[in-house]
Simulated scan of single mutants.
Amino acid sequence: MYLADLCWQEAGKVLSDPETIVVIPVGSTEQHGCVGPLGTDWMIPDEFCRRISGMDHIVIAPTIPYGVATHHINFPGTIDLGIETMIKVMGAVFESLFRHGARRFVVMNGHGGNDPAIEKAALEIYRRGGLVALIDWWGIAPKLNPAWPTGHGDAQETAAVMAFRPDLIKPEYLLDNVVPAPTKNLKPVHINTVLFEGAPVKIIREIRDTVNTGGFGGLESKMATREWGVAMMDGMTKWIEDFINEYRSVKLPEKDWE
């Protein structure tokens, strides 16, 4: 069920039910390589939530389409809340729902830049007696199948969007990645991450100075197929359902830290 579809009387009953898990889809509005839509990071979590919305004792909160997109701001259309604002947004969402009885939350996240803010807000609500699970789908997918490698604005995310909104992928904008190495001994592997003598280190730069398309880290977008996306979205949906069923048995914190 969707929280937005309920009247306040219905919401009161649902949120105060100890069996209820509130799922919050979160993403970002930012560049996603040469062919990915700006809404990639919130559209994919939104789609996962649509797929699990019929599960018992699950309520889907409205999707949060903005996030921490500081590194992407030089690409047109990107909207950056910044980390401090994102902490406040997530904290306010958790606190509001907690006030009305919700104790278990799952954040269906589509953007790695959001993680520190979500984790900070989640720890605060834990200290109140709530519990938050953070699902970063792109990092889980390669564990289910190594043929689904992750990156930013690359083939993995492009394939995922192809599974449910293929019309948003526009091949006429497809470009090959040009990834200049900072030095001959520093090998770029993901946006600001390079390898030096086999070890990863970050050199913080504007993304436009690291890759011409804005997408890098896995396979290039031209490698994406709808078949890959369908299989990956289906596999991830099954994993999410199984995780949520297991998560129900995790004990809530016994102490109210206030």
Rank of each mutant, 00 (worst) to 15 (best):
M1E: 11
L3M: 14
D5K: 13
W8M: 14
K13Y: 05
D17H: 04
D17M: 05
V23R: 04
I24L: 12
V26C: 12
G27N: 12
T29M: 06
E30L: 03
G33F: 00
T40P: 00
W42S: 11
D46G: 14
F48A: 04
R50A: 13
S53K: 14
V59T: 09
G67W: 02
T70V: 10
G77N: 09
G82V: 05
E84Q: 15
V89Y: 06
G91K: 06
A92F: 00
E95Y: 09
S96R: 08
S96G: 12
R104I: 05
F105Y: 07
V106C: 08
V106W: 01
G110I: 04
K120A: 15
I125A: 06
R127M: 10
G130P: 00
A133E: 03
D136S: 15
I140E: 08
P142F: 04
K143E: 14
N145C: 12
P146M: 05
A147M: 07
G151K: 03
H152W: 07
G153V: 02
D154G: 13
R165K: 13
P171W: 14
L174C: 05
L174V: 04
D176R: 13
N177S: 13
V178K: 12
V179M: 08
I191L: 13
T193N: 05
A199D: 07
K202D: 12
I203M: 08
E206L: 10
E206D: 15
E206N: 14
I207T: 11
R208D: 14
D209M: 10
T213Y: 02
T213C: 08
G215V: 06
M223L: 06
M223P: 00
A224D: 03
T225W: 01
R226Q: 15
V230F: 02
V230R: 08
M232R: 06
G235T: 04
M236D: 08
E241K: 15
F243V: 08
N245W: 05
